[in-house]
């Protein structure tokens, strides 16, 4: 079996994998990072969204071997010990989650939206950008609010955030 090597949440990892192994399986089953979820089999729902080399991707539609040499960040890699990422905090503050299953993918997608569109997001931008993330619980109302507010919070310097 081929060996795949990448960094996940800043940590180098390497494993023998069956070529069929999807990135999401590698994360969940090899690394036991079960925060990344699988909600569909047609690349539609976005529950499996992680960052690969700084961009949001659907980990259910990437072979682990395709991520060779890449840098992956999952929901578990956000924030610092004792310190939530501002987008995580915004989801909590604005009740942007109910059952929590789509949430890791939503948060990873949300950060990607901010990375591309900046810290001041119009509601329609957020709604359009969430096309690839399905939530069945919230009706999106509070997710949109959380992302808008989380985007603003991401503009604040980290030190200030830590002090809050």
């Amino acid at each position: 079996m081929p060996i795949v090597t990448m960094t996940v949440n800043g940590r180098p990892v390497s494993a023998d994998v069956d070529p069929r192994t999807l990135l999401v399986q590698f994360l969940r089953e090899n690394l036991m990072l079960t925060g990344t979820h699988v909600g569909c089999d047609t690349s539609q729902c976005g529950a499996c969204t992680v960052h690969l080399d700084g961009h949001a991707v659907k980990a259910c539609t990437v072979l682990a071997l395709q991520a060779e040499g890449g840098a992956v960040v999952t929901i578990e890699g956000l924030g610092a010990p004792g310190l939530l990422h501002p987008m995580q905090e915004a989801f909590r503050e604005h009740h942007g989650l109910q059952c929590g299953f789509c949430t890791p993918g939503m948060i990873m997608a949300a950060i990607d939206i901010v990375n591309r569109h900046g810290n001041e997001l119009a509601e329609h931008t957020v709604r359009e950008e969430l096309e690839g993330n399905i939530c069945r619980c919230t009706g999106y109302h509070n997710i949109v609010r959380a992302i808008t507010e989380g985007a603003r919070a991401m503009a604040a310097p980290v030190l200030n955030r830590a002090a809050e």
Binding site: T34, G35, H37, Q88, R92, H95, G100
Partner: peptide
């Protein structure tokens, strides 16, 4: 604010799978 949220937003929820 919800008590259960911390585990979900940090990827520490534990679903059957």
């Amino acid at each position: 604010r919800r008590k259960e949220d911390h585990r979900f937003i940090t990827g520490k929820g534990q679903y059957t799978d």
